[in-house]
Design a protein around this nucleic acid. Structure first.
Lengths: 244, 244
DNA sequence: CAATCCATTTTGTGATCACATATCGAAGAT
DNA sequence: ATCTTCGATATGTGATCACAAAATGGATTG
């Protein structure tokens, strides 16, 4: 009726706080283990504590934040023990998303992915640390959106939330450039599989991308330990109770 | 120091409201699409609106509830379109949990699972509708807990939340007894695979359990449509754009 | 009979207050 | 110097209030 005005943002303050905290976590603007207080965040965001506490509770539900017995909130920290656990879940879920994406891929999406991957590569050569993380994330989520499943996208979103804070450390690790370069190559392998609608290979390649990056990071951040292996499908020593 | 008193529940009201709503959803005490209001729930629970709105927001984050543009809350309803989508995600995630459980299974867990499955079977023969759903859930989550992954347990918990409300319909469908009986048999297949630490078979059998029950329910609840098939790994018609 | 209008009620949202508990810091004791 | 103690401050939690937007339900009009 009237094109002199444009639609404005009608979302609730709580929703915007939630999204803002989410972005901050994705981009590693909070450190793992960092303590967050409602009033401090409210002051920083320029609102009352009310919307903040609801947003924080939602993030606790997603395991992005942890509530200590003291009832204080802290950014979820990954210990070595559950690091592997979360990585393996990511390989399964995100691998499955890639599988779905390969089955549903329309030709346009692959050229789009190549474009995203090229920008990712340029950020690497430009030594743009923020751009590398962003480019990698951009590529992955473009694949997951091609899977055309809100359910999956939601789950994967919470999985990534958990890793955002530790990803900020990546840029300070020596050899990250080479690691990212290998990522570009594996991404191309994912795209090629999607082009052929080869779901199995797309899944494998994407899980490989996650696993390779994860075990590189694990080695440098947690300091060695054995490698992160794909899980076997049959356990050796049939019928034996696992020794504790 | 003093054993004349016992520990009491020190969780927040909000947490208890959240758990209560969660249980209500699991047990199908809310109908899909039902509208929930904060004040009404608060009155029914005997608290102020404050803890309720936080609990509700958490459930929205888990996709168990939906917030309409009117900003009213309703129990998430499954349409035929995304029913299959969620079921397939469940097959992947819960199948993976079974795979993990098979690798980690200690002998005790299998006898425990058989016991749970027997109780499940007894509920069926006793025509105890509530007991059937509960027994089935009990078995599944016993398997998932054996996977020893908090991450997985959390994800699967939210997946089940989504299906709780529609599960209440199962008891009114003719032939549910036979369906549940087949479930007991497939459960046994899962247990046998776990005993042999055959992770691949455990995963397959558990996904089969979900898929069989889901396509039975789908046929009777949504009324026919084609069957729910496991996803192919290669698409026919290579390089062809999918017709819309 | 159907549609419209308007007063009333309901409902989510944000802000503020009250309070119990936890945390911190300085003064004091051993 | 180290530990303890105690007042002051900070923090999460629950309740209440205020308000705008939506839903409701008659009364009125065509």
């Amino acid at each position: 009726m009237d094109d002199r005005v444009r639609p404005i943002d009608v979302t609730t303050v709580q929703e915007r706080v939630y999204q803002e905290l989410r972005n901050a976590l994705y981009q590693g603007r909070f450190m793992p283990g960092e303590v967050l207080t409602i009033r401090a965040l409210a002051a920083a965001l320029g609102t009352s504590p009310m919307p903040v506490r609801e947003a924080i509770q939602r993030l606790v539900t997603e395991n992005a934040l942890t509530q200590l017995p003291n009832r204080t909130f802290q950014v979820a920290a990954l210990t070595l023990e559950n690091y592997d656990e979360w990585i393996r879940v990511r390989c399964e879920v995100e691998g499955y998303a890639a599988q779905r994406a390969a089955l549903r891929a329309r030709p346009g999406i692959c050229t789009e992915l190549r474009k995203i991957n090229r920008i990712f590569g340029q950020a690497i050569e430009a030594r743009d640390a923020g751009g590398m993380l962003e480019g990698n994330q951009h590529f992955h989520f473009a694949v997951y959106e091609a899977a055309d499943s809100d359910a999956l996208l939601k789950i994967i979103g919470s999985l990534w939330l958990r890793f955002g804070p530790v990803l900020a450390f990546v840029q300070h690790i020596e050899g990250s450039i080479e690691m990212f370069r290998r990522g570009v190559a594996v991404h191309e392998r994912v795209i090629a599989a999607m082009e052929r609608h080869d779901a199995k290979e797309a899944r494998f390649a994407l899980a490989l991308d996650i696993r390779a990056a994860a075990s590189w990071f694990r080695r440098h951040h947690f300091g060695a330990g054995e490698e992160l292996q794909p899980e076997p499908l049959q356990r050796r020593g049939l019928g034996q109770a696992r020794p504790r």
